[in-house]
Amino acid sequence: MTIKFWLNGKQIEDIIPDDILLLDYVRTKGCYSVKRGCETANCGLCTVLVEGKPVLSCSTLAARVNGKHVTTLEGLQKEAEEFGAFLADQGAEQCGFCNPGFIMNVLAMMKELNDPTEEEIREYLAGNLCRCSGFVGQERAIQAYLAKKKEEVSE
């Protein structure tokens, strides 16, 4: 079937298998940041934004994004660098394999939640598993990032 959609701001028209998953499809388009960590929708590694909302690309048919805007970390390099620097300053990126999906969801959280509490942050990001960091360093990075964002706003 044919789909026409926006991938990281660029319009794409393509012929795709009807049952290809968005995860597999965007990888064929060079979006290698999108990873598969499970088959049961539990890990969050494949998180992308569809119309700005974080979704699991492992559970989304590519056919379903016809006419929509899809964003992967490749399309948010500036934001990834900005937040990623805070992760890197904690050493919490570790193996890095879960990072793209995690960062996508952090960026989605920043849009959806205003001044979230520690508990709200944990709850929003609960679907992003990480086996290296024990999550604690990720949370230090988020707190530092939020503090900087607040500072920017007050300046």
Binding site: Y32, S33, V34, K35, T72, L73, E74, Q77, A80, E81, F83, G84, A85, L87, A88, D89, G91, E93, C95, G96, F97, N99, P100, I103
Partner: peptide, 15 residues
């Protein structure tokens, strides 16, 4: 920082 940190956090194809 880890030398490879920024490549990892920006999702570079390195795996």
């Amino acid at each position: 920082r880890k030398k490879d940190a920024m490549a990892l956090v920006t999702g570079k194809p390195v795996y």
